[in-house]
């Protein structure tokens, strides 16, 4: 039985690892500094030779705006949960958050397309993508913050209250030192999530080429995620496919940076 289970479990360990190795080995050939910063002349019909710098910048901008926009809202929801909500409201809030997290990202993309791109006339823009991604990461960010706040021992809060500290002082002096690492973990995970979403920004925020630095919030961007998608379909152009693998490797490394940092932080927190 044990052997049978092991055999069954083997693909679960092996295949993901193999695909990771596969990506990195394919990306290795085409990864270079000139690929990222774009010194080489465009060689294919589609300009894959411009360097990936604009795509990296675009992805990071989208991620940054998603976090900046959702952070205050997430904090206030978490504070509402911790300070003002009744038992039932707390449970309701958690349920709604889970519900929202279950909705597929592409559905948020569609909503954003109607409301932001068409009705508000933002057009295909960084702003639209940022708002949509913010809504997508909001449930994740909020529930992470709520969990961080829940880990604060009751006695600490109670004794602070007994000392006559106001809620703002409690948050600033008692809670913040205790939860900052949990909050940071949440933010890092949200960043990783925002970086990995592709479908919702495909129609709302990105164009194929021509942007190296977004001039304003209403200008479109290019992103690593959508770049991979476009280049993935470049059947017979070996160079473009190489760039696609390289983009995938860069994107993976960016995401790994954030999620590994989050994991390390969480480990530290558990030990304390």
């Amino acid at each position: 039985m044990k052997w049978f289970l092991m055999l069954l479990a083997l693909p679960a360990f092996l295949f993901p690892l193999a695909s990771l190795v596969y990506i990195l080995s394919h990306a290795w050939d085409s990864l270079s500094w000139s690929l990222i910063f774009g010194a080489e002349e465009s060689s294919s019909m589609i300009e894959a030779g411009q360097g990936l710098w604009p795509q990296i910048i675009g992805s990071l901008w989208l991620m940054l705006w998603a976090c900046i926009l959702s952070l205050p809202v997430a904090i206030s929801l978490a504070l509402f949960h911790a300070l003002y909500a009744s038992r039932r409201q707390q449970r309701g809030l958690m349920m709604i958050l889970q519900l929202l997290q279950g909705i597929p990202p592409i559905v948020y993309g569609l909503c954003g397309l109607i409301v932001l791109v068409h009705l508000l006339h933002w057009g295909i823009s960084l702003a639209a993508g940022g708002v949509i991604l913010a809504v997508i990461v909001l449930p994740l960010l909020t529930s992470n913050m709520i969990h961080a706040l829940e880990r604060i021992p009751m006695e600490q809060t109670e004794s602070a209250k007994a000392l006559g500290l106001s809620p703002v002082q409690i948050i600033g002096r008692v809670w913040l030192p205790l939860v900052w690492s949990g909050v940071l973990t949440g933010i890092l995970l949200a960043m990783a999530r925002a970086l990995s979403e592709t479908a919702p920004i495909l129609f709302t925020a990105t164009v194929f080429s021509g942007v190296d630095w977004p001039d304003s919030m209403l200008s479109p961007v290019t992103s690593l995620q959508t770049h991979i998608f476009y280049l993935a379909q470049e059947g017979s152009d070996a160079h473009a496919v190489g760039v696609a693998w390289a983009s995938a490797a860069i994107l993976l490394m960016l995401i790994l940076c954030f999620s590994l940092l989050a994991l390390v932080l969480r480990r530290l927190e558990e030990k304390v």
């Binding site: 990771l20 970086l195 959508t226 991979i228 995938a248 995401i255």
Partner: peptide, 11 residues
């Protein structure tokens, strides 16, 4: 779990 779907698509 954090690998983006478009990368899986590429694979």
């Amino acid at each position: 779990a954090g690998i983006p779907s478009v990368v899986y698509g590429l694979i």
